[in-house]
Amino acid sequence: MARLAVIGASWGGMDAVARVLRQIEADNRLAIAVAQHRSPDTDGILVQFLGRHSTLSVVEADDKDVIEPGRVYVAPADYHLFVEGGTFALSTEGAVRFSRPSIDLLFESAAEAYGEELVAVVLTGANDDGCRGVLAVKEAGGLTIAQDPSTAERPEMPEGAIGSGAIDLVLPLDAIAVELNRLGAAERSRS
């Protein structure tokens, strides 16, 4: 199972995620899953936007999609995205702390499925989604990264993640991309 990166973003997240993805190298062998808070009726717009900023193929995750390296999967609006084994699963269970997709649920399920092979990234946002998620990731031996709050459009979410005590690296967006490229290159030499 190739390594997986999960990215959680909220307020200001579209531009932040795009900025990271734009710098991901085309032969990066990470699989990337993105949970971005947004209005339920933004069907497909985020995928199109991110697709324009990425050399990797960007898709909205379908239920039971097999997780493949070198692809970016976006949690569909108004669904929770879970990782189960090597596939995605979707759910329309109620919003968790007002959010669907919930970053916590993506991170927690991915932590269980990927353990040490997971890297979790918390970007800009004005709430505390992701806080519980990064704890699960850390506990399962994964790597945790938060955007440097002073560089975030809204600092609350990365601050919350850092405050949980489970964050390994605090980095600005461009350095996060560098880190993901480093991990993706290591993945290449492994496979």
């Binding site: 879970f82 990782v83 189960e84 699963a89 759910s91 269970e93 649920l105 399920s109």
Partner: peptide, 9 residues
């Protein structure tokens, strides 16, 4: 049933 959701419930 899919495990993650089942487990949450």
């Amino acid at each position: 049933y899919a495990r993650t959701s089942l487990k949450r419930r």
